[in-house]
């Protein structure tokens, strides 16, 4: 058990971060290569301001007509994404590990605060899951893999939460927590979760196409 834990918090961390960043970089580089000839339209009408506005309006909560049309979903969806990044990045335990490994760390929040935010994150996750089941236009599009990915995104938080609260066998929870976290990192570049970076490219493109070429608002 101890060896497994050591492996997961040692070499496996390196591997998963390498796959995460390397995979994303590879995907972007590959698409950039493809785009040279087949996506001339992307390069022909580039404009920093149109691209930027097209991105910015969708990073702001309720910043677009579309998001305002479903405000409850939009707020949940926004919180889900913010917490997905904020909780792991500013968690004290994670920062302690980084400090031990690299001698650097970020600001971290008090544990009880992180604990509450984790509950909030899981609540948004449950909401998004339920929405997929409840709304017919979403349910019809959703595949088993879409549900799986959502569960895989929430699992590191759930296991981390259980471990912190010492619910269930602590060592196993901790191992599962690290394992699911790493699994998620590895999956991101090769799934629709690649939108973590590709979002910026596809939004920029529609900004060029509808904003720059036509003057339309893309939000």
């Amino acid at each position: 058990m101890y060896e497994l834990y050591n492996f997961l918090t040692g070499p496996a961390v390196w591997i998963s971060f390498l796959v995460f960043f390397g995979g994303l970089l590879f995907r972007i580089a590959y698409l950039a290569g493809l785009s040279r000839e087949r996506d001339r339209v992307f390069y022909n009408h580039m404009s920093a301001s149109s691209g930027f506005r097209s991105i910015l309006h969708w990073l702001i909560p309720l910043g677009s007509v579309s998001l305002r049309s479903q405000p409850v979903f939009s707020v949940m969806f926004f919180c889900f994404h913010v917490l997905l990044f904020a909780v792991p990045l500013f968690l004290q335990a994670h920062n302690t590990l980084w400090h031990e490994a690299f001698g650097v760390s970020l600001w971290s929040m008090p544990d009880h605060f992180a604990d509450n935010l984790t509950i909030a994150f899981m609540a948004t996750g449950v909401f998004l899951f339920a929405r997929r089941l409840v709304r017919p236009e979403v349910r019809i599009l959703t595949s088993v893999w879409d549900y799986t990915l959502l569960i895989l995104t929430v699992l590191p938080f759930l296991t981390g939460f259980l471990a912190y609260r010492q619910i269930g066998p602590y060592p196993i929870m901790l191992i599962l927590h690290v394992l699911f976290g790493e699994l998620l990192l590895v999956i991101v570049p090769f799934s629709k979760l690649g939108h973590v970076l590709l979002f910026f490219f596809s939004r920029a493109f529609i900004g060029f196409e509808m904003g720059e070429r036509r003057g339309a608002r893309t939000w």
């Binding site: 698409l31 950039a32 493809l34 785009s35 000839e37 087949r38 996506d39 339209v41 992307f42 579309s66 998001l67 049309s69 479903q70 969806f77 997929r132 709304r135 236009e137 979403v138 599009l141 959703t142 595949s143 879409d146 629709k192 690649g194 939108h195 590709l198 979002f199 490219f201 596809s202 493109f205």
Partner: peptide
């Protein structure tokens, strides 16, 4: 010939949120 960065990206990142539905007059 059309399998470029745009179509690949669009087909692979659609997160099935369903927000497009309400925008369509056929729907």
């Amino acid at each position: 010939a059309n399998d470029g960065a745009r179509i690949r990206t669009w087909l692979s990142i659609c997160s099935r949120c369903g927000l497009c539905a309400e925008s369509c007059f056929f729907y």
